[in-house]
Design a protein around this nucleic acid. Structure first.
Lengths: 336, 336
DNA sequence: AACTCCAGCGCAAACGATTGCGGAAAATAT
DNA sequence: ATATTTTCCGCAATCGTTTGCGCTGGAGTT
């Protein structure tokens, strides 16, 4: 009710005939303050809907109880899952979050970084954009004593905590599955190789082939990690199509797109060509045939990222940085 | 470079042998300060990477230059598009954003609201959660002089600026299209009727039927607005299926889910049953057959929401509240 | 009676930036 | 030469909260 203006500690102090310091202490049950006073203050504070001023707090304590997050694109189910995990853990520990999207754009990432640092976030959780090759903006965070946790797409140049999926093993598993199903000539729609995820998934693909005594062929690897790139490369994909019996795409979006492309051109999935993706996006179960893919535990990864960061912020983290590797799970559906 | 600690205005003042007030004014080219001093201060500030302290600023100016955003679920493409629109407009006008998800949960929405108010956002842009029936938390924003703009899912009880799609017309168009294609018995998977979007789309559906002289049947309207609800209601949907020749779902997710369900049970889309959705999610073009749907201009709606809000914040808005209605566009693909 | 001790509270200085007002020096006018 | 205006800058208060330190009065000790 109380209407317009937010009550401050001084307002409460004045109204109750005590000093601001007493109010401040009473609100946190400081032992110096008598029980009676505590109760009186707290009740009055409640009545006038007192809420601490975060600006004054931040100014005084030199911390914001806020975690900054930079992710490439929030629209991907994996990233939103991670986000939920981070939020839940953070809220539970009294932290808030501030979310920025880089839109896979390096410049935007740098701007976001600055904005978050300007807002004096206590720590950062980041998954780097595809177009980021220079990591100096992350070092700036280190300079300002702001710890960074990288998840999924990490930055090797910077010593930090990391939370990743076992991309290698996930890729190896799903490609092995394709081989077990009888595939011999498996096309890989690869992600950027300067990103750990792209590299690891590629490596897992190669490993699975080797395990089965199949020689990897470089013309069966195409850099192509979005639906629009699938469209852009349709002619080369279609030129390979007659000679292949399987596709492993670096993510579900490309997998769905290539599946559609192949279907439109008369190939039966999985009859002629089996298709597998990576990530288990909700999309995977909505397309036809439903997509065989690799499940990542995004939510748990988010929680763990936040846990690692907050431990460090609260000073109860080991000095050495850690890398948490989450298992990947093969999710067999209809497409392979 | 400069290492650990962020330089403050006082640090600069001390280093340059001037007063903090001079530095403050020099940094914004105040006419009281000589050109020479301005240049000196600005150059030094640049050198030490001076960045204003948002806490001090917020405390003094009693505004944060930050817009709070509450949306149901960021994972929906529509909402992320709106988000991008808001961000672009806001950044362009010197505002930052703080994003919260309600996850369609009323409690969470209330908490988010309080968190944003605690952070002293200057204004709010909100799309209300499905489970919100009580709007008192929004009134609290009004009490604190924090203007709110509602988009898409509005709140009728509160006088405010609004930005919406012409849901009625969109629904009418797409259902008319179904009818033109020959559909007579069209199932509607409806959203919650306490939300304007659910209601308007339903009304558009009814209007299209009436326009064609078809009598709406209540047993052809099922409340069902997510894939999991489609699953949950599969038996009733399938019991209706033999008698229908079209489906209009309140969003693309449900449309895709129902399409799969029907296909799995031997119905050909669009041969036996035509299916249409709403929203033009990227999903729509990835499923088979590609989904006929209604396009909403999410990005533009985001920009407009931010524009309306910022105009009000900057004091150059008319007193009366406005409602901006964005057109919807029929997007015909393969499913209908 | 004089002492110590402690519970309970207030003073005042931060944190970093802004801004109205006043004042010294320099420039201009008389 | 003095008077007047400009130019340029500093003082100090302010935003709301925290916190080290000091003060008071009453209870307990000797």
């Amino acid at each position: 009710m109380s209407g317009f203006t937010q009550a401050s500690i001084q307002d409460i102090a004045k109204a109750l005939g005590v000093s601001p310091s007493t109010v401040s202490r009473a609100l946190k049950n400081h032992p110096d303050i008598s029980e009676k006073t505590c109760k009186m203050v707290q009740e009055y504070a409640q009545k006038v809907h007192y809420r601490p001023n975060v600006f004054a707090l931040g100014l005084k304590q030199r911390r914001s109880m806020t975690i900054g997050i930079i992710i490439p694109e929030i629209i991907h189910h994996f990233f939103s899952s991670v986000l939920s995990g981070i939020e839940d853990m953070a809220y539970g520990k009294g932290y808030r979050v501030m979310i920025c999207q880089s839109n896979e754009n390096h410049i935007r990432e740098v701007i976001n970084m600055q904005a978050l640092l300007d807002h004096r976030v206590d720590g950062l959780i980041v998954s780097v954009s595809k177009s980021t090759l220079d990591f100096s903006h992350f070092k700036k965070a280190g300079d300002q004593q702001v710890p960074v946790v990288f998840f999924d797409r990490t930055c090797d140049e910077i010593d930090s905590d990391r939370v990743v999926t076992n991309d290698f093993e996930g890729a190896r598993m799903v490609v092995s599955h394709l081989i077990k199903r009888g595939c011999r000539n498996i096309l890989h729609l690869a992600g950027p190789q300067h990103l750990n995820v792209g590299r690891e998934r590629y490596n897992g693909y190669v490993q699975a082939l080797r395990d089965a005594g199949i020689k990897p062929k470089s013309n069966l690897v195409i850099k192509c990690d979005t639906p629009s790139k699938v469209e852009y490369r349709r002619s080369i994909i279609l030129s390979r199509a007659p000679g292949i019996d399987g596709v492993f795409a670096v993510n579900d979006f490309s997998a769905a797109a290539v599946m559609r492309l192949l279907q439109e051109n008369g190939f039966d999935i999985p009859g002629n060509i089996a298709v597998a993706g990576f990530g288990d996006d909700p999309l995977a179960s909505m397309v036809r045939p439903a997509l065989t893919t690799v499940e990542q535990r995004g939510y748990d990864m988010g929680r763990e990222s936040a846990r690692l960061l907050i431990n460090r912020l609260d000073g109860n983290a080991k000095k050495e940085f850690q890398t948490r590797i989450f298992p990947a799970f093969l999710k067999v559906r209809e497409s392979a």
